[in-house]
Every structure is written in structure tokens, then in C-alpha cells.
Design a protein around this nucleic acid. Structure first.
Length: 569
RNA sequence: GGGCCUGUAGCUCAAUUGGUUAGAGCAGGGCGCUCAUAACGCCUUGGUUGGGGGUUCGAGUCCCUCCGGGCCUACCA
């Protein structure tokens, strides 16, 4: 039994996330956490909402709420949806927690003591009407290169050239539309990441087994141009962890807060502290290598846009502190999920969002489709046709129907209890041999977080059950040799329990229904498949479960397709 | 502009890191079965691996070039 710390990238507080966000971090992290728990490992699975930054302040203002109230409400909404998708967090925290405030300030102070923070005075765009400094992308104007009228201050979406907000012609605030913009002097703290370059390079180089997506992004940042640059870790905002506090070794930071990307990863640690406070557990044995965390394996899940912060800035914080914090061991990163020929778009209402998905179908449909189509090697695409075909075939026809045919046949011929008689023959031995091999392959893929391959293997295991039944044909055998037919069905009923156990990480609700139908709560993993297939003994009572997965009709598919199309460009 | 990823059957993806005849699922076609959610099983059609050139005994895999898709480029998160 090993100990595994698992974190999912923390979703931003601003609104409900879409299916692409779900499959980009939380869902695969949940799959891995569930699998490791099922194998008997000790797991700490943490997630949280990322609540600071400009977008949160603006979203709260738009909603007419104080930012604290807005974040509290949205955290509740996201937590509820996470429960709906059966995301099995041990704790779902908040980056605005008191624990994170204390920890973030402690890290900053420690980094300053290590000589890794310097003060920088710079000029930034200030919007008089909005009363705030604006990040570059919140300023729009005409592109000096191509004349595009809605170019952002950081980049022109039309000619893709990178810009500086002062280059824009007729610049305006995207918040208020005001053109009353001016450059103002402001002072910020910078993390001297350049000092950490060699240490980070050595660390990244030692991770030869990481996904190419992860290491290539990290190496690009380490080696591009003059190498890793120092990074500002404070912002001129009200909402965040204050950059001024007792013992802070700098002045002039009054009214400023830490940059969201400085405090957000620290929330991974703070979430464990929140968990400890709520449960009385010991967080240090997960995070402090001097307090028991040296034998923890730490795995992070995230979308590719998060990689630089998890491979460089957060490790710079951890390493730079010189303190015995647990560093990540493996980073599983994902590409993006696109929607029907384009991107998911919150502003255009394009695509399916997490709350909408749950209102259409139970979470297992989404979990299965998303995981079996996870954007691991490249961007993937959601289409309603594919979703309908995959879920109908895999879940309803292959798995759901298998459960139906076995339980209903037994009820009709032997009643609703595991029947007695007969013995395993050649067909049964062959099935066990095949399943054993496939199960070991499935375990290998799950341990390697090779999600698509694991899903293919799991499906093959389901199919093997149908193949066996077809070849064994108990409906024919029962006419001449009822005892032998009983042996076949006894095996098949046990197969349902085994399938529930091994499928549980992908489709927890259906697995629970299968177990309820078999009237057992024996969730033990089939390390010994032969023994596992005899776990439900003769005379063990069961009941025919409700249809596990109903099919998605063509009419539903057409309607949903229309409903979530949004405005096409 | 630069960097990285990617292009394989109608669709979604594999291919043990350069090694037999490029494999699965779905969709299509045929057959079988009748326990089951009009389900299941078996067989089968389908590929100049984006185009071109090169290295090699051998290239989907390595190199060059062109074309297409995507991401990042440090003040969104």
C-alpha cells in the first residue's frame, strides 16, 4: 500500500466550467484517485476554487455583489456540480481561505529572506473611469499593424501579432469603454525565477517519464531568449492575499495583493490544511518531507495552459523556500476539448457546461465519453453524433445489456438467487485466462494514467462477457443440462460484480447500481480473478436491476445539438 | 516572427520508440443467435500513413521542404 497525493488544477471561480475544463483536470484526476483507492492505496485528493484576480472582481461587480459574497456563492455552485459529477475530492477548498492567506504570506516572507524577491517600479495602464489598473488584455483598440479595431492590448486576434497596450490606436477599457487611460507608475514584487533557472532545469531534466507536452513547455520557458525571466507576483487589486502584513520585509505594498498565480498553487497545500481543520487529520504527513511525506507520490493533473505555472513558478516557490515541502512527482497534462468544429465559448453560449450536462443525462454518460476521448495526445472534439454513438454502444448495448440478459435469464430459469450445480469447463477456463490478461493490462494503463487505452481495455473486458455468453449459450444448454447452465449463469452473475468493481473509477453510479442489484458490498479488487468469480456463493439472493443506461434517441441528439450551438462565427 | 504539438480507413484513435502483410472500435455489408435495452456473436468491405524529396537492407516512425489544424510566446487565468 502506497500513499498518493493527487491534485487537480483548481478551476477559476468565475462562472460554471464547461466539459473541456472538466476533462482537462478534475475528471482524470478523479479517475486516478478512485482507481488507487480501489487498489487499497491511501489517497489524498485535493481541489479548490481559484478565487482571486481581476476577472473575479469584475464578475462580482457585474453580478452586483461584493466579491466575497460572489465567490462564496460560486464556490457553493461549483462544489454542488462537482458532487453531481461524483468528483471524489477529499477536500474542495478555496484559495481565499485563511489558511492560504497565512501560507502565501509565509512563502513570500521566506522567499524574501532567501534573497529571491526584488522590488520593481514600472509603468502600467490605469483606467481613471474604472478606478483600477487594467491588465493588457482588458484594453482594446485598433491594431497598429493590420487596422483590426478590436485588438487586445497583449495581442491582436486578427493578425496574431503581440502588442503592447501603448501601441494601440484609440485604446479603451473593455470594462467601461472609457478612453480615459494613462500610464501610471506602480511598484511590484518580482520572484527572481532567473536565480532558480539551473535548479529548475536539473529538476525538469530528471523527469524523463513525463508527457512530452509537459516537459516541452517547461523547457521552452527555461531556454527561450535570455532564459527564465523574473516574474511579478503582486498586483494592484483589492481582492486577494494582501502583500503587506506583519513582518513583511518591504514597504510601499499597501493596498496590493499577491498575483493569483502565486497564491493559487499554494492553495494545494492550504487545501490540505483546510481538510485537516475540518476532519482533525494530519496535513503535514502529505506535504512536509520532514514530517512523513517522503514516501508520498504526488501527481498533478492540468490543462496545457497551466503547465508553466506548475513546472516553473510553483516549483520555484517550493525550491526557493529552502524548506522541506513535497515537490510534484508526475504531471499529467491535457490538450483541449473542442466543441463541434470550434472552441467551447462561454461568452457565445457555445458548447455544454457542467450544470447543463447534468440536467440532460446522468454523470456516468459524460464521465465515460469524456474519459474515453480524453485529449491526451492532441486536441479532441466533442460532437453529439459521436457522443450518442459511443455511449449507446458502449454503455447501453455492451455493458447495460449484458447485465440485463444475465439477470433476466437467471430470474426466468432459476429465480433471483445464484443457482447451484455444474462445474466450470473449457469455455470458462478460457474466459478466465483471457479476462486475467486483460485485467492486468487495464491495471497497467490505469497506473500509467493512459486513460484512453484503459477505457479501451475496460470495454474489451465487458465485450468478453458477451462473447462468452454467446459461445456458452446457456439458453440452449438449459434445455438438456440445467446444472451446466446454472454453472454458466453463476459465473456470469459473478462477472457483474467484478465488472462493477473494476468499472467504478469510470462510471461510479452504474457500478453502485450493479452492486446493489447483486445485493453485495464486496468491493474487493479481483487480484485473484478465479476467486473473485466465486465471491457470490450459491443461493446468494440478487435482484434484476433497473435498466443501467437508457439510449439517447436521435430526436434528443438533434434537439441538444441545436440548443447548444450558440452563435456560430 | 519564434517555439512546441499534430495530420494514419467515412468517423474516433492504435502501432512495443527504425523491423514481418499498418491494427482496433464505430459506421457500412453479409451470416448466425433468440437469454437480453431492435440487443449479442461471427465474418467482411475499406488505407499511395497530408504532398514532394532524402537517409537506410528496411521509414507511419529519422532529416529537408511545402500544405493544413492547434497551443504557447511571460499583465487572462
Amino acid at each position: 500500500m502506497a500513499r498518493h497525493l493527487i491534485t487537480s488544477a483548481i478551476p477559476y471561480i468565475n462562472g460554471i466550467k464547461h466539459l473541456g475544463n472538466l476533462i482537462g483536470s478534475q475528471l482524470p484526476a478523479d479517475l486516478y484517485a478512485r482507481y488507487l483507492r480501489a487498489r487499497g492505496h491511501e489517497v489524498m485528493f485535493l481541489c479548490a476554487t481559484d478565487e482571486h484576480g481581476t476577472p473575479a472582481e469584475l464578475a462580482a461587480a457585474k453580478a452586483g455583489q461584493p466579491v466575497e459574497a460572489y465567490c462564496a456563492e460560486m464556490h457553493g455552485v461549483q462544489a454542488e456540480i462537482a458532487r453531481g459529477f461524483r468528483l471524489s475530492f477529499d477536500h474542495f477548498g478555496r484559495s481565499s481561505s485563511p489558511q492560504n492567506r497565512v501560507l502565501t504570506q509565509a512563502f513570500a516572507k521566506r522567499l524574501a529572506e532567501q534573497g529571491l524577491i526584488r522590488e520593481v517600479t514600472e509603468m502600467q495602464m490605469y483606467s481613471v473611469a474604472d478606478g483600477r489598473f487594467l491588465p493588457d488584455r482588458y484594453i482594446e483598440g485598433t491594431c497598429p499593424n493590420c487596422g483590426f479595431e478590436s485588438a487586445r492590448g497583449d495581442q491582436c486576434d486578427n493578425c496574431t501579432k503581440q502588442l503592447d497596450p501603448v501601441d494601440l490606436i484609440n485604446p479603451r477599457s473593455t470594462v467601461s469603454g472609457s478612453t480615459e487611460l494613462e500610464l501610471r507608475e506602480t511598484k511590484h514584487l518580482y520572484l527572481r525565477q532567473s536565480e532558480m533557472r539551473d535548479a529548475l532545469q536539473d529538476w525538469i531534466d530528471s523527469k524523463s517519464d513525463w508527457p512530452i507536452l509537459t516537459t516541452s513547455i517547461a523547457k521552452k520557458w527555461l531556454n527561450d531568449g535570455d532564459g527564465l525571466q523574473d516574474r511579478g507576483i503582486t498586483r494592484d487589486l483589492k481582492w486577494g492575499v494582501p502583500a503587506q502584513f506583519d513582518g513583511a520585509p518591504w514597504s510601499g505594498m499597501e493596498g496590493k495583493v499577491f498575483y493569483v498565480w502565486f497564491d493559487a498553487p499554494i492553495e494545494y497545500i492550504a487545501a490540505a490544511q483546510e481538510w485537516a481543520q475540518a476532519t482533525g487529520g494530519d496535513w503535514e504527513r502529505w506535504w512536509r518531507t520532514d514530517k512523513g511525506a517522503e514516501d508520498v507520490t504526488y501527481t498533478q493533473f492540468m490543462g496545457k495552459d497551466n503547465v508553466p505555472f506548475h513546472t516553473l513558478s510553483f516549483p520555484a516557490t517550493i525550491l526557493g523556500s529552502g524548506e522541506p515541502w513535497k515537490l510534484v512527482d508526475y504531471i499529467k497534462s491535457f490538450n483541449y476539448l473542442n466543441y463541434d468544429g470550434g472552441q467551447f465559448s462561454t461568452s457565445r453560449g457555445r458548447g455544454v457546461f457542467m450544470d447543463q450536462a447534468l440536467s440532460l443525462l446522468p454523470s456516468d454518460y459524460w464521465r465515460w465519453w469524456l474519459l474515453s476521448h480524453a485529449p491526451e495526445s492532441s486536441d479532441a472534439e466533442f460532437t453529439w453524433e459521436n457522443f450518442q454513438q459511443s455511449t449507446n454502444k458502449d454503455l447501453a448495448d455492451v455493458l447495460g445489456n449484458l447485465v440485463s440478459r444475465v439477470t433476466k435469464f437467471c430470474r426466468a430459469k432459476f429465480g433471483e438467487a445464484v443457482p447451484e450445480g455444474g462445474n466450470w469447463g473449457e469455455a470458462e477456463e478460457a474466459l478466465i485466462a483471457q479476462l486475467d490478461e486483460r485485467l492486468r493490462a487495464y491495471e497497467g494503463y490505469m497506473e500509467a494514467m493512459d486513460i484512453r487505452k484503459a477505457s479501451i481495455e475496460l470495454r474489451s473486458i465487458w465485450v468478453a462477457g458477451n462473447e462468452y455468453l454467446q459461445a456458452a449459450a446457456p439458453w440452449t444448454v438449459v434445455k438438456t443440462d440445467p446444472a451446466q447452465a446454472a454453472a454458466m449463469i453463476r459465473l456470469a452473475l459473478n462477472l457483474i460484480r467484478v465488472y462493477a468493481v473494476i468499472s467504478q473509477p469510470f462510471i461510479p453510479d452504474a457500478a453502485a447500481s450493479m452492486m446493489a442489484g447483486m445485493k453485495t458490498d464486496d468491493w474487493s479488487w479481483p487480484d485473484d480473478l478465479r476467486a473473485a468469480l466465486a465471491a457470490l456463493p450459491v443461493d446468494h439472493v440478487f435482484e434484476v436491476p433497473e435498466v443501467l443506461f437508457r439510449k439517447i434517441t436521435d430526436e434528443e441528439r438533434a434537439e441538444w445539438q441545436l440548443r447548444f450551438a450558440g452563435v456560430r462565427d
